[in-house]
Design a protein around this nucleic acid. Structure first.
Lengths: 206, 206
DNA sequence: CATTGTGAACGGGTTCACAGCA
DNA sequence: TGCTGTGAACCCGTTCACAATG
């Protein structure tokens, strides 16, 4: 079912489908169609059907899709039918904001560890979590078996921290630092850089 | 030169080129090639040459590109050879973190206004900026001629705030709320949702 | 009758390969 | 010689259109 042949671009759309579907659930909408879902997301109905067909047959002709069933299926495909532990490195303003964000848990994630290099921050709490010193990162992350890391450190140390994370067994990194990371092939990296997205839009302004 | 025919996907890569080039500048690297730049970004040399060729001929055969010249050219293409004013709506943890972030100015942006709906926050300062009440948003944003907005408000009010921003003349919105926004066609929207990016990666884990 | 799942056609982005030039 | 700029070939994702079906 889940061949290697699924295009990465299709995988990248599934989380958006899931988000829209979960919102429908909150609104007590029981059924949807590729057209309805597509209109909510600005994606063609054909594309949604094609994407989903990569993983199975989830709909009923004439009726559409059961929202709750499709939520479960997509969660399973994306491996988010469980909660993933996350290690957060960097307890600056952004790190604090992320650590306090309440929206992770019902979408499959939970921050379980926080590290920083600043001795003054070590030992303090963010919510229920204590800030640890990065010198203990590798050991603690490996011991906890955490597979996902979030980087909110200065650009100058992002590469070094990324290496420590991968050595500790982390296989997915969400990088908020504005630098490309070089990591082993088995490690996935996603970047978040607001300025890159702003510059994408300024091209079309004026 | 800059036709309407430039694919959006090409535009989306230019900010990454610019980022890498500015980093080279910091490292006092005077010259680069499509191959060198490509290796730093994980993009093929041919692609970089093709992308740049959409806008002009910036290189020298046998030599490559002058870093500083190319920085200027790409900045001009992206319209970031000036500083854009930004209005930030939502002074929660994330809004505070973004407002305090020091990395905007040397990449073409500056936050000039902050709004929030919470009376307790109104009047307080973040850095040198005072938090205003959203009831004044439309008027003040229009008066200041701000064209770019950043949304760090709860999902439940994001659509409403987006509408107020567009009515105030904003033409580009960077949306941190985990909901799709529906806006007029002349308004650009970019989304930042860490969970969507995490779920993209969990597909490949385990 | 509405809507799915899908083969086929289409379109467009990427890579190739090389002429051209410093 | 080294590297750019680019037409052509290639590849792959999207759209189309329709048979199938509850």
């Amino acid at each position: 079912m889940v061949d290697k042949t699924v295009p990465d671009i299709v995988v990248g759309r599934l989380p958006r489908y899931l988000q829209a579907l979960q919102r429908m659930q909150q609104e007590d909408i029981l059924t949807t169609s590729s057209q309805d879902l597509g209109e909510r997301l600005g994606i063609s109905a054909a594309q949604i059907r094609k994407d989903l067909s990569q993983f199975g047959e989830f709909g009923k002709q004439g009726t559409g899709y059961s929202v709750s069933f499709l939520v479960n299926q997509v969660q399973e495909i994306l491996n988010v039918n469980k909660v993933w532990d996350i290690v957060l490195v960097g307890a600056g303003d952004l790190g604090h904001a992320i650590a306090r964000y309440q929206g992770f848990s019902n979408r499959g994630f939970r921050i379980v560890m926080i590290f920083d290099a600043d001795e003054h921050k070590v030992g303090k709490q963010i919510g229920k979590l204590e800030i640890h010193h990065v010198s203990n990162l590798k050991e603690k992350v490996r011991a906890a078996g955490v597979k996902i890391g979030m980087l909110t450190v200065p650009a100058s140390v992002a590469q070094k921290v990324a290496e420590e994370l991968t050595e500790a067994g982390v296989q997915a990194i969400l990088n908020y630092a504005p630098v490309p990371l070089s990591v082993p092939k088995h490690v996935r990296v996603q970047h978040i850089d607001p300025i890159i997205q702003l510059q994408h839009m300024t091209f079309y302004l004026e």
